[in-house]
Nucleic acid binder design. Sequence first.
DNA 1: TCGCAATAACGAACGTTATTCATTTATGAC
DNA 2: GTCATAAATGAATAACGTTCGTTATTGCGA
Lengths: 230, 230
Amino acid sequence: MRQDREVVESDRRRAGRPTVAILDRARIVEAGLRLLDQSGIEGFTMARLAAELRVQPSALYNHVSGKEDVLSGIRERVSDRIDVSEFLLKPWNEAVIGWAYSYRGAFAAHPPTIAMFAIMPISDARITMAMYEQVVTSFIAGGWPEAKVLSVIVALESFILGSALDAIAPFDMLDPGEDRTQFPQLARVTLARSDEIHGAEIPDDAFNEGLRALVMGLENRLVQIKAEKS
Amino acid sequence: MRQDREVVESDRRRAGRPTVAILDRARIVEAGLRLLDQSGIEGFTMARLAAELRVQPSALYNHVSGKEDVLSGIRERVSDRIDVSEFLLKPWNEAVIGWAYSYRGAFAAHPPTIAMFAIMPISDARITMAMYEQVVTSFIAGGWPEAKVLSVIVALESFILGSALDAIAPFDMLDPGEDRTQFPQLARVTLARSDEIHGAEIPDDAFNEGLRALVMGLENRLVQIKAEKS
DNA sequence: TCGCAATAACGAACGTTATTCATTTATGAC
DNA sequence: GTCATAAATGAATAACGTTCGTTATTGCGA
């Protein structure tokens, strides 16, 4: 008699605990990430997330404390993909390049997650402590004074996160359009761009140039600091 | 007879156009900025904004198209305070320091506006075209090739915006707390911080170090580019 | 100076949204 | 086998952004 009802697949599920688990935190987060990618941050509602999981909205609250909790899980899920392994193999100034690309790429792969900065503190968006431990170790091994290590890493993270924000921005706005005469220099450089760097690859080029410059500047700074100490 | 009603100040306002203007876009934006500073982004509602202006919510819609419009106005209002004047007086590599501090400071003065960047297209978040024209002019005068100017400026903006985001983030997260043994290096550097750099000034130090490093790296890059050309 | 369209307030209503709660059903430990 | 716990449904709620009809005032053209 139990089977009578369960065999009919398209039947609306009755109230009460289901015989096979349909929800848990991981599944909710995974579906949430998919929904977020599809619909963007403003299309991300608990109702749609529930529909995606073929469940009533209230069912979600047995596994997560609310919408913020889901978003928090998604952020963790995304930043877990950041690769810090190169710090084990190469010196800090080389490893940091791959790390930065991986960092920015993790968020760029899911653009709406970048927009989540608006709603929740960045703290969650940062890499985990285990990752920090790895990065910090590498910087100390490279000779950075302990009091400076965190500042330098935070500076790098700032640049990376800022670049991630930039990567999702539309760049047409910079084109002066009709106002060529009003902003002549701006007009010139936006035209020059389309010649040498084709397409909308400004964010990529900016990230690349900025990252190399930043690392080079830090290398110089480290030399200077070491000189001061002795 | 008209006065009979108007004299009583605490009277609830009757329907119909008021004899003296109480609302306009500027006043709404100004009150919006105050409310945003007080209540944060999640406490910013049209109802509360209306209450602040002693007006019914629907009255706002005679002057702004909606909430997004108000936020957009606030952003403009805030970024108008960015100072690009130094680019007229000094070479790019000097002027850029003051510009960056002014840029970050304008938003740091109103922390919740920083978070707004993510939620709405960055195009609006960027400085205005007039400012860009000024900055671009200075970089070209400094010898940067036209095809690189935009990338370099965007890289700088990315760092500045990322730093602004960082500046409002709580930094306790980085303290390993109980897990000193699990993350020994991280524990060491967080302790070293409190000795030399006292207080929670990591974001400030990170911004300073990062900015100098970035500019120095760009200076080197410019030299290299010039050498390649000849 | 009169008339009247435009302006700008109020107040009521609507559709969403996140969340809570009572109810129902299955699980799993004793 | 009993029963506390877990986990689903479904109904309900408050808050939010926005729209619309109504009303009162302004300011321009005749």
